[in-house]
Design a protein around this nucleic acid. Structure first.
Length: 557
RNA sequence: GCCCCAGUAGCUCAGUGGACAGAGCAGCUGCCUUCUAAGCAGUCGGCCGCAGGUUCGAAUCCUGCCUGGGGUACCA
């Protein structure tokens, strides 16, 4: 069974201590809220601390220090704690027992790849829908950030005890696709020497020229003999399949694999959209105006109404979104859905929330996770991106240049709401100094030590020998993973993993400096076995951390 | 105009109510006979955009302003 997080356990013990002190008449009656337990930034203040006494000073009408002392006196001190200190303004500091810390080596090794899991989700079903780029061309760097955030978030939520499904929403309907089909048709014609213009709002990228040539080479001019509309549709289908195939390939080479590819078009083919539209109409959330059909978002807290069916009779993107989210929540009954969106879609958030209300669903079950866009530079020069004009840096190009591990780490290492600059020249030039190698190198070092150990029976190692500062620091760092997973899952912020990974690697490198592990001196046998066991536990934790980030854990570098 | 995100070390960014504000890169000084120097140790570097306010305590919360990015009713 997975143990409770120490910080949560301590919080409840502090709370119980306050209540007990009240019952004993040593503290006045007041509402005891949740007790904050934090990790002191400064060394020397222990492993955990609570400032709760300062917060209670006013309501308890006592000096913070007195409250802290009283609370400490009534505290049921758990076996993993070495000592409790009450200090200066009113902090209560908790120091973990060295012996208990060392004993966790066995616990980590016992849990293996499951170490780091926490019970937060309790089996709740969560869908993470991400990437979902229009299949009109190759994936861009923006989709790369989306993929990395979505995939790592899904992994973190799984580790936190949720039942997670990864989904890609294929926008295979609508006006953008029509423009794509017409553009590809034009390129196909041009490849055969037939003059045909790419439409005004079409896609100008070079990749479409190549696709047109490929189709011409494979099929000859047979599409030219069809009625034009039929030919555009047939070539479009073919182009869609080609693009989806390349998208799938690119994502797979980043280690991103989806459980479900959901077709937008299917929402219409199944009649689901028409059905939901009727439901909303009956509920009074639909009205016709200026020849279009509108969703009355303003009646449900939205900032403005939204067109569902345009005056030309074509359903807009929002029409699909309504049916799609009905399908997610009602037909597939996900408890929670997280849509990962670029910040350029932020304007839709209020209407999505309004839509949830219109469907009779709790808006909080839908989370729109927005990430700011990536600004690409080449040597300081901003590279403007547009799939339509064809001025793009593809995800594939960057992957080929710096590799999946480095790209994932880089794109994951900033919080979603922070805009980020990626200088392509720098990314390539600094690749040797990239933190990704720092972290992976620690894993390779561990593997090297374990190889050196040969068949030494370190499973027999006596962990109580692991008392030095370097060993204890490493133990503390290893035990932080569950807390990091917990926090990343609560905040929906997988970037915490990258900072933890660097810290863990740093602590390990320090341990490596201070502690010779494999000694040839027979007198050192006991400490060698104990340290090998610790190193093996470090391997487990570092590998899990890399795995959660979707990165490889190399045995050698 | 209005709405959203950001503004923290030379650069890229963590930290969003608690103890002297952190990391990586860049700069400077040292460390390889010994399990991988893609490493380690040290050092330099900050009116946390500006001005008020709330609080025992503010980079963190509130108000106003400045700067950058994004959005803003029939594109997605």
């Amino acid at each position: 069974m997975i143990e409770m997080l120490l910080s949560k356990d301590l919080a409840s013990r502090f709370r119980a201590a306050l209540t007990a002190a009240q019952a004993a008449g040593e503290l006045p009656a007041f509402e005891v809220a949740e007790v904050p337990v934090e990790r002191p930034k400064q060394a020397g203040y222990g492993d955990y601390a609570t400032p709760v006494a300062m917060q209670l000073a006013r309501v308890a009408r006592q000096a913070p220090l007195a409250i802290a002392e009283t609370m400490a006196r009534f505290l049921d001190v758990p076996s993993y704690v070495e000592k409790i200190d009450v200090v200066r303004p009113g902090y209560v500091n908790v120091t973990l027992s060295a012996r208990w810390l060392a004993s966790q080596v066995d616990e980590i090794r016992r849990q293996g790849p499951a170490f780091g899991n926490v019970e937060l989700g309790q089996g709740l079903r969560v869908q993470v829908e991400f990437v979902s780029a229009n299949p009109t061309g190759p994936l861009t760097m923006g989709s790369g950030r989306n993929a990395v955030i979505g995939d790592a978030l899904a992994s973190v939520l799984q580790a936190a005890g949720y039942e997670v499904e990864r989904e890609y929403y294929v926008n295979d309907a609508g006006s953008r696709m029509a423009a794509f089909y017409a553009s590809l048709y034009a390129r196909y014609c041009q490849a055969l020497g037939v003059p045909e213009q790419v439409p005004e709002d079409g896609y100008l990228g070079q990749y479409l020229v190549e696709m047109g040539e490929q189709i011409a080479a494979a099929e000859g001019d047979r599409y030219l003999h069809m009625p034009r509309e039929e030919a555009v549709a047939a070539i479009g289908e073919r182009g869609l399949a080609m693009v989806l195939d390349s998208i799938r390939t690119d994502l797979k080479s980043m280690g991103v694999v989806f459980d479900c590819w959901f077709s937008e078009r299917s929402l219409y083919e199944r009649g689901l959209f028409q059905q939901i539209l009727e439901t909303l109409r009956q509920r009074g959330y639909i009205e016709e105006r200026e020849g279009a059909i509108w969703f009355r978002a303003t009646a449900l807290g939205g900032d403005k109404d939204e067109v569902v069916v345009r005056s030309d009779g074509q359903p807009g993107y929002f029409a699909s979104d309504i049916a799609y989210h009905y399908d997610k929540f009602v037909l597939r009954s996900f408890d929670r859905v997280i849509d990962v969106w670029g910040a350029d879609h932020q304007g839709h958030v209020p209407r999505m929330k309004a839509m949830m209300r219109a469907l009779g669903l709790d808006p909080d079950r839908l989370v729109l996770l927005l990430y700011q866009l990536v600004t690409l530079r080449r040597g300081g020069e901003i590279v403007r991106l547009s799939k339509r004009t064809g001025d793009i840096i593809t995800l594939r190009e960057v992957l080929d240049e710096i590799g999946s591990d480095a790209l994932r780490f880089f794109l994951l290492s900033r919080s979603a709401e922070s805009q980020m600059d990626l200088d392509l020249e720098l990314a390539v030039r600094q690749s040797d100094e990239n933190p990704v190698y720092y972290v992976q190198y620690a894993h390779a070092r561990i593997a090297s030590i374990l190889r050196r150990a040969g068949d030494l029976p370190f499973a027999e190692g006596d962990t109580s020998l692991l008392t030095s500062e370097a060993e204890q620091n490493l133990l503390r760092a290893l035990l932080r993973l569950p807390e990091v997973v917990y926090q990343a899952a609560v905040d929906l912020a997988p970037h915490h993993l990258t900072y933890y990974a660097q810290e863990l690697a740093g602590v390990f490198h320090g341990f490596y400096r201070d502690c010779r592990v494999v000694s040839s001196d027979p007198a050192d046998r006991a400490i060698t076995l104990a340290r090998l066991k610790l190193v093996d536990a470090a391997r487990v934790v570092l590998a899990r951390t890399l795995n959660l980030m979707g990165m490889s854990a190399p045995e050698s570098m």
